[in-house]
Structure formats: C-alpha cells, structure tokens
Simulated assay, not measured.
Amino acid sequence: MTDTSGEKRGMQAFETVLSKQDTRVAEFEVHARSPLQMLQHFLHANPTAVPAIVLVLGVAVFSAIVGPRFYSAFNLSLILQQVTIICIIGVAQTLIVLTAGIDLSVGAVMVLCSVIMGKLAVALGLPVPVAFAAGLATGAACGAFNGLLVVRLKLPPFIVTLGTWSIFFSLNLWYSGAQTIRAQDVAKAAPFLQWLGTPVDLLGARLTYGTFFMLGLVAIVWYVLNRTALGRHIYAVGDDPDAARLAGIRTDKVLFSVYVAAGVICALGAWALIGRIGSISPQAGQTANLDSITAVVIGGASLFGGRGSIIGTLIGALIVGVSRSGLALSGVDVLWQEFAVGSLIIVAVTLDQWIRKVSA
C-alpha cells in the first residue's frame, strides 16, 4: 500500500526527503590561535629563526662564561676559518636534503677531488688549470653517478650514497697510495691550490680567502634557490614530487642536476680544504659527511624535503663552530663537546617534527 501522506499535504516525495536533511551552513570563521600555535606558525614560515636565536644565545652565553677570550676578534675569525669547510660541504648537502634525499658521500667526494688535483699538479707535473679542471670534473662525475642511481634505478639516496661513500673512499686510497703530499711540495708546484688559505687581516681579525669564498658561494646558491625557476623546482620536487610532475616539472632532470651540482660544490670544497691544511691528505675530512648533515639539520632544513635555506646552513655551521670553540675554551673535554653537538641534532629534528604539524 502506497504512503500518500506527503502528497496529501501538497508535498512531492523528493521534498519529503529533503526536509529531513541538515540545514546548517558552512562556517568560515577564523578561530583565535593560542600563543603556542602562533609560535608554531611563525617558525614554520621562518625556518631560519630558531637557528639564528640559538646562535645569538650561544655567543652570549659563552661570552659570559669564557669572557674576552671568546669574543675577541682573533677567536671569532678562527671560528669562521674552522667552519669554512663544513659550510661549503653543507651547501652541497642542503641541495640534496631539499629534494628529500641525503648524501653520505660528500666528504669522500671532496677528498677524492683534492687528491686528484694534487696528484696531477704535483706528482705528474700537469698545468695547474688542467689539474683543477680535472678535480671539478671528478666532482661532477661523482655527483652524476649518484644521480643516475637515484633517478634511473629509483634507489633510496641513503643507500646509494652509503655505497658510493665506500667506493669513492676506496678510489681515493688507491689513487693516492695512502700517501700525503706535503705542503712544501704543493707550494712549490701548485701554489694556486693553496690560494684560499691565504690570510687576510681585517679589523684585528685574521681571515682567509677561503672565508670570503664560502660567503660568496652561499650568496650565489641563495640567489639560485630564491630567485630562479630552478630553485622553485627544487623546493617543489622535495615537497611533493608527484604534484611537481603533474605541474609540468621534469623531476628527474631536476634531481639529476642537483646531484651534479652537489658534486661540483664538493670539488670546490676540496680546493678550500687544500688551502685550509696546506697539504693534500687522503685521510683528511673524515668527519665532513656527518658535519655537513649536522649543519643542515641544525640550520632548520627538514630531512623530509621542501623546507630549508642556505642561510640556515651557514648559521648551523656557525652554531657548531661556536659550540665547540666555547666548550673548548671552557675546558670541557672533547668527548662532551661531541655529546653537546649530538644533543643539538636531536633537538633540531624534534623541533622540525613539531613545526611540520602546521602543514599536516
């Protein structure tokens, strides 16, 4: 038997159904944020804010504890010299991390390039420009090798670079014969390779050309990342590769280019390394891999990709330098200096996880 109660009241069947639906309308009111939420959003929008605050606090604390010895022009310039290599390799590491990868081979690439430059120029007597170009080409080749494995074979960057770290380090020991080229021999045959170690006195501070080279490199890469289409593509690939691909970005080409660029920067780091220590040693830069990751993470870059900056990496390297210098001048044992740096890494990653919840 058909129910005609709705029709008797002058209503159609579909009107009877619609009358039972929720009549509430959508609300678009913006609710007030708590102070903690406001801080979280501010830090998400300004990834370099935290490392900058930490750096200022570190300088203030160690200045109060150690006294004039810490904030003297000599000590501050010494910190800049000590972080030069870390920052240059950290720039290469930052490019990889922005694409949601990680490169454990940057230190091995740097040392291999330095050995090739030295062997060709000093041991074989080739013209310095040829040796230098060969070092840059080696860095590019190492980066291209990493890039091909990641892009073509779709292997995880961590596993790829863990393997190539061993490969490049073994090639380094084989080609060098595990022998160091003395600083005197380098100065005689190829003084250009030591040029970045040339000291410069500035307002009571003793800097080197390597420090200015580091700052120039940071400025160039900052411009590329913030003012060019390639920089925007790098961030897009790291944030969401599928969305970047749908937007027309050639993600594989961008990834490959990043790895090649990182290899070339590592070769430039090899030049700075020779200038820093004078000699060419196959055992140099043993901690460069972890130091570069430390600078990048403490500098506010996200290991999940798409977030971070070169300025943050520079600040992160300075934080490491300030911490080690301040603790050393305070009489703290080297063991506890490394303990402090490790604690900073854990705090930085934890803070990054909390900040990322804003976009979740």
Rank of each mutant, 00 (worst) to 15 (best):
M1Q: 14
T2D: 15
T4N: 09
T16E: 09
Q21M: 06
E29N: 08
V30K: 15
P35S: 03
L36K: 13
M38F: 09
Q40T: 13
N46R: 15
A49R: 10
V50W: 01
A52L: 15
A52S: 15
L57G: 13
V59W: 02
V61N: 04
F70N: 06
S72A: 08
N75S: 14
L76Y: 13
V83F: 04
T84L: 13
I86E: 01
I88F: 03
T99L: 03
D103I: 00
M110Y: 06
L112G: 04
M117C: 10
K119M: 03
K119Y: 01
L120F: 09
V122F: 01
G125A: 02
A134D: 13
A134E: 12
A137E: 05
L148T: 14
V151Q: 04
K154E: 12
K154F: 06
L155P: 09
L155E: 08
V160E: 01
T164N: 04
L171H: 11
L171S: 10
N172W: 02
S176H: 09
Q179N: 11
A183S: 11
Q184F: 01
D201C: 09
G204S: 06
L207N: 03
T211V: 15
G216N: 09
L217C: 06
W222F: 08
Y223D: 11
R232C: 03
R232G: 04
H233N: 09
I234K: 06
D240L: 06
D242L: 13
L246Y: 15
I249G: 12
D252Q: 13
S257G: 09
C266P: 13
G269Y: 00
I274H: 00
R276D: 12
I277N: 02
Q283E: 12
Q283P: 07
N289Q: 05
L290T: 10
I293N: 01
I293H: 00
T294V: 15
G308S: 10
G312H: 05
G312D: 08
I315E: 00
I315Q: 00
L318W: 06
I319Q: 00
V320F: 02
G331W: 06
V332D: 11
V334M: 07
L335N: 08
Q337E: 14
Q337I: 12
Q337Y: 10
E338H: 12
G342D: 12
V347A: 07
A348R: 01
L351Y: 02
D352K: 00
W354G: 14
K357D: 04
V358S: 12
V358K: 09
A360G: 05
